[in-house]
Design a protein around this nucleic acid. Structure first.
Lengths: 151, 151
DNA sequence: TCTGAAATCAGAATGGT
DNA sequence: ACCATTCTGATTTCAGA
């Protein structure tokens, strides 16, 4: 991992379709070398894949929630509960955190019923959950998880 | 937007490099038709772009934080504060929410100093911020914001 | 590890239904 | 909106440095 790799990653995190041609002029090195480096980054799993970003609102995913969850302590409770939360349909983010809460969970649904059925009812019926407080997102001001390199 | 579009999106949200060839066999329709549909989804901004997924830990982005922020009320305070938060280097998610907190912010840094300098000092010196509580992420159990279609 | 050239293949363009 | 064919150009491969 050197400066050149970093430049490649910086470009590809913004645009996966950026061509070898353009990268090669940008980096002042032959296409084949760029290709070689990208392949390397892929095989090292630094580049984990390429995906299309779909607009959630286009699919009517307007009911977005973020929950703070406190668990009931027991052996391995955080591993058990963590995977249980991660497997709830609609949930895309589960973070185990320090502080007065244990897990922070982010999920997207199409409407209130969808949310109630898939999410709330499950969470509230999990014996490992001691307490949860859920925030409804009014507006997504920023959501760009792909922008890993910001410096 | 029909069932076929949804199938295309379901595949591309996981793998942007899935070829027209394979999509055409999968969907039992010619390449050119698939290409036509994808172009349509792009121009309608349902597909917002294609990104490389970079492993944050490969770049030593191990200091991940989630903050709950309460603002001081004033005219347009949430628009002002929202964009201020979104512009902090390292911040990739800003959500305006209902409940006892106003904003939820997610950010990634390489270490404690990086976090202190770029994030904490800024947040605590913003006059629009009344109160903030920041949780350090111990473990990312799930993070797949690109998986928009889960049903 | 890097490079140049050749070969292959995928995607864009076209024109017709 | 859909499809077959053609055409263009990007990516892969490979031999050599």
């Amino acid at each position: 991992m050197d400066e050149i790799d970093l430049k490649i990653l910086k470009i590809l995190q913004k645009d996966a379709k950026y061509s070898l041609e353009d990268l090669s002029t940008e980096l002042k090195m032959p296409k084949s070398t760029v290709a070689y480096r990208i392949k390397r980054l892929e095989s090292l799993n630094i580049i984990k894949g390429y995906y299309a970003q779909i607009d959630p609102t286009a699919l009517n995913l307007d009911y977005i929630v973020i929950s703070l969850i406190r668990g009931k302590y027991s052996k391995d409770y955080h591993i058990e509960l963590g995977s249980k939360l991660a497997n709830i349909p609609g949930v895309w983010g589960v973070y185990f955190v320090l502080g007065d809460t244990d897990f922070i969970v982010i999920a997207r649904y199409r409407n209130r019923e969808d949310f109630m059925k898939n999410y709330l009812e499950r969470i509230t019926s999990m014996p490992e959950v001691e307490r949860s407080s859920t925030h409804v997102v009014v507006k997504i001001i920023k959501e760009s998880p792909n922008m890993v390199i910001w410096w």
